[in-house]
Amino acid sequence: MLGDGLAGDGRNEEALSWYVRAAENGHAGAAGVAADWYRDGVGAEADPVQAMRWLLVLTAQLNVDAVHRAHQVGARMTDEAILEAGRLADQPTEAQVMVATLARARERE
């Protein structure tokens, strides 16, 4: 709620720090906002590794929307960057699955 209030006041950098803090404490909604903001560069420079970090946390919870968003973000990332996001998220298996899934998608193109 604090992040939402700060964002409403245009204090996006502070809001992002609170979304991240809530995400680190298991708040799925905050993880989704942090992922989107890092993807889009709101409150910080665009950072696909951080965006993927939070998306991998959500995909591990079987959040189908996050899976779709992770595929979009991951399509513009290197395998190494995705694996780093998995390390940061403590979701290395999710990251490996994402790398393999994206590789199969590229083969079909």
Rank of each mutant, 00 (worst) to 15 (best):
residue 35 A to G: 06
residue 15 A to K: 01
residue 32 G to R: 01
residue 13 E to Q: 14
residue 44 A to S: 15
residue 16 L to W: 03
residue 3 G to R: 02
residue 48 P to V: 11
residue 91 Q to Y: 07
residue 24 E to S: 09
residue 108 R to H: 12
residue 78 T to H: 07
residue 92 P to D: 12
residue 109 E to C: 08
residue 26 G to R: 05
residue 67 V to R: 05
residue 17 S to P: 02
residue 2 L to P: 04
residue 102 L to C: 07
residue 20 V to S: 00
residue 69 R to G: 03
residue 59 T to E: 02
residue 13 E to A: 15
residue 13 E to P: 03
residue 68 H to A: 15
residue 49 V to W: 04
residue 9 D to E: 15
residue 75 A to T: 09
residue 4 D to I: 13
residue 72 Q to N: 11
residue 97 V to C: 01
residue 74 G to N: 02
residue 53 R to V: 03
residue 74 G to C: 06
residue 63 N to R: 09
residue 68 H to Q: 13
residue 80 E to A: 15
residue 97 V to M: 07
residue 96 Q to F: 08
residue 48 P to K: 01
residue 29 G to H: 07
residue 8 G to H: 09
residue 10 G to S: 11
residue 45 E to P: 00
residue 32 G to Y: 02
residue 34 A to T: 08
residue 18 W to K: 03
residue 30 A to D: 03
residue 87 R to I: 13
residue 77 M to Q: 04
residue 61 Q to F: 05
residue 93 T to I: 15
residue 59 T to W: 01
residue 43 G to I: 07
residue 108 R to S: 14
residue 39 R to A: 14
residue 25 N to H: 14
residue 69 R to D: 14
residue 25 N to D: 14
residue 21 R to W: 11
residue 9 D to R: 15
residue 43 G to P: 01
residue 23 A to S: 09
residue 78 T to E: 11
residue 77 M to H: 01
residue 20 V to A: 05
residue 39 R to E: 13
residue 99 V to S: 06
residue 47 D to E: 12
residue 66 A to N: 02
residue 64 V to I: 13
residue 72 Q to P: 05
residue 56 L to K: 01
residue 104 R to P: 00
residue 21 R to D: 14
residue 50 Q to D: 10
residue 108 R to N: 12
residue 61 Q to M: 14
residue 51 A to I: 00
residue 13 E to S: 12
residue 45 E to D: 15
residue 71 H to S: 12
residue 52 M to P: 01
residue 96 Q to W: 05
residue 107 E to K: 01
residue 26 G to C: 12
residue 57 V to E: 12
residue 23 A to H: 00
residue 35 A to I: 02
residue 75 A to M: 11
residue 101 T to N: 09
residue 54 W to E: 06
residue 45 E to K: 06
residue 50 Q to M: 14
residue 51 A to N: 02
residue 13 E to C: 10
residue 72 Q to C: 11
residue 107 E to D: 13
residue 73 V to A: 10
residue 77 M to R: 00
residue 105 A to H: 07
residue 2 L to S: 07
residue 32 G to S: 10
residue 27 H to K: 08
residue 92 P to R: 15
residue 51 A to L: 03
residue 4 D to M: 13
residue 23 A to K: 01
residue 39 R to K: 11
residue 78 T to V: 09
residue 46 A to N: 04
residue 88 L to I: 14
